[in-house]
Amino acid sequence: MAAAAAAGAGPEMVRGQVFDVGPRYTNLSYIGEGAYGMVCSAYDNVNKVRVAIKKISPFEHQTYCQRTLREIKILLRFRHENIIGINDIIRAPTIEQMKDVYIVQDLMETDLYKLLKTQHLSNDHICYFLYQILRGLKYIHSANVLHRDLKPSNLLLNTTCDLKICDFGLARVADPDHDHTGFLTEYVATRWYRAPEIMLNSKGYTKSIDIWSVGCILAEMLSNRPIFPGKHYLDQLNHILGILGSPSQEDLNCIINLKARNYLLSLPHKNKVPWNRLFPNADSKALDLLDKMLTFNPHKRIEVEQALAHPYLEQYYDPSDEPIAEAPFKFDMELDDLPKEKLKELIFEETARFQPGYRS
């Protein structure tokens, strides 16, 4: 834990890192770190609560700039109880001085990944967590956004079992017609939660990839272990087919990539493993919904509104309290091709509203 900075004593240090967030945020305490930044909790002297502050230093890398800009653009436009918001952003007053960006968010005690390492969940908890994931996802999908990296560590939890989806750095506007060349190379989302079509096709992607990830998360809540822990690309596919069985001819016809289709045709026939054999203690309604989410063919996979209306979630289902976005989200430009200098300018502009004396 960093010592509390005395008023006016300059930035606090946390594990050798400068955290320049005073005077409003003090009493910093280390939480963890990701690929390009550290997260601390801090005391907000204005709202009198502890908050989470993520320090991001992305400006050396085009990919990190892209992810940072995506996350900020999306989260500043989203407003939903099951999606983490941005409360404040701290950065230098000029673009030349801006080396880091500090993002202030609600402090959540833990995440689903940490929880599943230590606790076996009751059916009631599984049901409530799944409902909140789908409630947040309904809003995301209504904005025409794909999260693309749903996994237990991106689901934040607090002691009252509130759940918030975080990390929109890989999110995209849904565009089933656009052929994202190089899709697989830039697709760094965790393999275990990846839909089979991501490994088999490169053309376009749809909201059904997020539903697949939610199915993987439900299976993990039922058993405290990942359902498809593939060691590499082909191993991942083999794990999936080992449980779902061989795809039907109709399902194979959806695979545009001939090499991928021929690979699947070359494999020995596998039978589907019954879900109640894998999860003998699970609620039968939970397994019915799991089956509809972990469907090989993305066109037959359940959609988020149908999933919310499934009998497993009937005690929570309330369409009048499951809000959607006001308007579909649009990125003005494809960020993939922009140089990091341009992305830095866009991050600077996007964060201006939090600067003292800002006038829109």
Rank of each mutant, 00 (worst) to 15 (best):
A3K: 08
A7E: 05
A7L: 14
A9V: 06
G10K: 12
E12W: 06
G16D: 06
D20S: 12
V21F: 11
T26V: 12
L28W: 09
G32L: 06
G34S: 00
D44I: 04
N45C: 12
K48H: 13
R50F: 05
K54V: 13
S57K: 03
T63D: 07
R67G: 05
R70G: 03
R70V: 06
R77A: 05
R79I: 15
N82P: 10
A92R: 00
P93Y: 03
I95Q: 06
K99V: 00
I103A: 07
Y113E: 07
Y113A: 09
Y113S: 08
L115H: 01
L115V: 07
L116P: 10
H120T: 04
S122I: 12
I126F: 14
C127I: 07
F129H: 04
Q132L: 15
K138D: 09
I140Q: 13
S142G: 04
S142C: 09
L146V: 02
L150K: 05
N154V: 11
L155D: 03
L155H: 03
N158L: 13
T159V: 13
T159M: 13
D162A: 08
F168P: 01
L170R: 02
A171I: 02
R172V: 06
V173W: 05
D177W: 06
T181I: 12
T181H: 08
L184C: 11
E186C: 05
W192C: 14
A195I: 02
S202N: 12
T206N: 13
S208E: 06
A219R: 13
A219Q: 12
L222V: 05
F228L: 15
P229F: 06
G230P: 00
D235G: 03
Q236A: 07
H239C: 09
H239E: 10
H239Y: 12
L241E: 10
L241V: 05
G242Y: 05
G245C: 15
Q249P: 06
D251L: 08
N257L: 09
L258Q: 15
K259S: 00
R261D: 10
L264I: 04
L265F: 06
P268K: 06
H269I: 07
P274C: 07
P274E: 12
N276G: 09
L278V: 03
L278M: 12
A282Q: 04
A282L: 02
D283E: 15
L289N: 04
L289G: 04
L289Y: 10
D291M: 10
D291L: 12
M293L: 15
L294F: 03
V304A: 12
H310K: 02
P311H: 15
L313K: 04
Q315M: 01
Y316A: 00
Y317L: 01
D318I: 04
D318F: 03
P319M: 12
S320H: 03
E326Q: 10
K330T: 02
L338I: 07
P339V: 10
K344L: 04
I347C: 05
I347P: 04
A352G: 04
F354W: 11
F354T: 06
G357S: 10
S360D: 12
